[in-house]
Design a protein around this nucleic acid. Structure first.
Length: 114
DNA sequence: CGGCTGACGTAAC
DNA sequence: TGTTACGCCAGCC
């Protein structure tokens, strides 16, 4: 197996492991699952995360801390509201103190374990 | 089977 | 330091 389906599965799994009040980037997840060049595909996988209620896609932003995928959410600023509800300061679709709330699975997590 | 698109990232200018 | 161009992998037409 280890096919595209697994790729999505890994992305979902990592995103689900994101702690409360923290955010991460697509590239970090991509690198963690073993696809450092598939950052774009990670975001694409997030598109399918809509079927996964346990996947806090709002905690996943780009390297700049910008809420690039907020447009894909139901509401116009639903993503921002969710992040602010977690204590994350979001101004102009940009995560403030991104360095503080940034959560890197490659650092926080020892290794990928199924 | 070929080509285009896309919630990104890095390099180059 | 800001902007532009390219690459990357997976999904869809």
């Amino acid at each position: 197996m280890k096919s595209s389906n697994d790729f999505y599965n890994r992305v979902f799994k990592v995103v689900k492991q994101i702690p409360y009040g923290r955010v991460t980037s697509y590239g970090a997840i991509a690198r963690y699952i073993g696809a450092p060049r598939s950052s774009r595909t990670v975001g694409y996988a997030m598109n399918a995360s809509h079927g996964e209620q346990d996947v806090p896609a709002q905690r996943v932003v780009n390297r700049n801390g910008l809420l690039t995928g907020k447009h894909h959410f139901q509401g116009t600023n639903l993503m921002q509201q969710l992040l602010e509800s977690e204590g994350i300061v979001v101004i102009d679709d940009k995560v403030q103190n991104f360095k503080k709330v940034y959560w890197d699975p490659n650092i926080e997590l020892p290794a990928f374990k199924e």
